[in-house]
């Protein structure tokens, strides 16, 4: 098979809004990720899940911008994580319009009722 190509790696900080449905607790967690050129935000999430934190919950299916199931708030903007290029430090939050199952995983059948801040709501 082919030789492993050389990689350019840039360490980035990724801050993720977490929520644990078992305890009702919310917090922001920071991870350091060795970002490679040409990674999507989804590739970053997968790297964290595979290497740092198996408890991180997020949803994706098609990876090609079609199922629109992986949408999250990336640096304050709603985006699909699969087709968004990761270029530096980032803050990831769940969609604001739905209740949250866990971490970045929205419950698409339950709208968020209050207009207040999410973190306040859960405390």
């Amino acid at each position: 098979m082919h030789a492993e190509p050389s990689k350019t790696v840039k360490p980035i900080n990724v801050e993720i809004e977490r929520y644990d449905p078992d305890t009702g607790e919310s917090w922001r967690q920071k991870y350091q990720v060795p970002l490679e050129a040409g990674w999507s935000v989804l590739n970053v999430l997968n790297w964290i899940y595979e290497n740092l934190d198996p408890t991180l919950a997020y949803y994706y299916s098609c990876r090609i911008g079609k199922c629109e199931g992986c949408d999250c708030v990336v640096n304050g903007e709603k985006k699909l994580v699969c087709n968004t290029l990761a270029e530096g430090d980032m803050v990831l939050e769940p969609l604001s319009e739905f209740q949250v199952h866990k971490d970045l995983l929205p419950n698409r059948f339950k709208a968020r009722v209050s207009v207040g801040g999410r973190r306040k709501l859960r405390i």
Partner: peptide, 13 residues
């Protein structure tokens, strides 16, 4: 297994 119809599977792709 998906989170809703059209959010998983091959058809939408």
């Amino acid at each position: 297994k998906g989170s809703d119809i059209r959010r998983s599977g091959a058809s939408v792709t």
